[in-house]
Design a protein around this nucleic acid. Structure first.
Lengths: 171, 171
DNA sequence: TAGAGCATGTAATATGTTACATGATTCC
DNA sequence: GGAATCATGTAACATATTACATGCTCTA
């Protein structure tokens, strides 16, 4: 996972220079970003990459606001970025579907209960889907990952709906 | 993630008693299991769950083979299992798609190169898909998670193929 | 007789999260 | 005047992987 997080940070910093807080804000809501990056982990990775010479920072100050460390990617970092990028495109990393584990054990619950629980889940899924769906056409065009996730969630919604339907027939 | 791993272990142990090595063998190849569980982590979780009173073991020995610790789920463990199961069905945990991160940065590479890398990836994807596909109809019927993953991979293959196609037109 | 498999784990390391700390500023 | 936001991080903890250790048995 770590490598993908570095790849993401290097990619973002190459589109424009940013400081830690700014990146964190960007990723915090992150409905359209395929991985999770928490605040303190973000800062840690930036420090690590700076120590490794992949990025450098200059200190900036706007008026009376706290100092910021504005990072930019070094030549070494750009080479590292390309290596990470190639590796990422070339290889296939099995995603983990933690939420699927329970599906195989639904038989342990009465169908009515399982159905109710899956309906709760369906609502959450739909809500998340809508947030992806609201992303503008132009942004999505430039971000194939969002298109991917969009399709994933629409299928997931269909599958869960079907399951609920089948549970209804059983009871 | 940890909770899903415990859920999985408890579920497996309720279908039949097993020892650590056996569970690990089962999950090691795991083309049809939605999460990863490495050997030493498996042993660790079993110890933890035993310490918490969720499972117990009896020691068995077949002939001259090493002793085994055969685990079974306690009443407390069964209750914990049901709680974990309900929580898993009810909630929606965003999967992370580490492999998608690079897709948004393809523009940093010449289309021909990106296309070649994605073709490598496509082969790996197809190979994995075939291994899922070989799972028998009856096993898949009993494991909705496999059906889910199966659909996921077939879509993923299509998307990556399309991308390669589009990159071909660009160059 | 060498290597794979059976069976258990520990130790060291890597990775990630949560809660906490700080101190100014801006908004209500 | 109090809460939210800006901005940085550290410390403690939680989780997971890798490499290593042990020692027996079965197979080629």
């Amino acid at each position: 996972m770590k490598l993908e997080k570095k790849l993401l940070l290097l990619g973002l910093l190459q589109s424009r220079e940013m400081h830690g807080y700014e990146i964190n804000k960007l990723l915090e809501h992150r409905c359209g970003i395929p991985i999770n990056l928490k605040k303190s982990n973000g800062y840690r990775l930036l420090s690590k990459m700076e120590k490794d010479g992949w990025i450098t920072h200059k200190t900036e100050k706007d008026g009376m606001r706290p100092q910021k460390r504005v990072y930019s990617v070094t030549d070494l970092g750009k080479r590292a970025f390309l290596d990470l990028l190639k590796e990422n495109l070339r290889s296939f990393s099995k995603p983990e579907f933690a939420g699927f584990v329970g599906l195989d054990f639904m038989g342990f619950l009465p169908p009515v209960e399982a159905s109710a629980l899956l309906s709760e889940r369906l609502e959450l899924l739909k809500e998340h889907f809508r947030s992806l769906d609201e992303i503008s056409e132009s942004v999505r065009k430039a971000h194939p990952s969002i298109e991917h996730m969009h399709l994933y969630y629409s299928n997931e919604i269909e599958l869960v709906s079907d399951m609920i339907g089948r549970l209804g027939e059983e009871s």
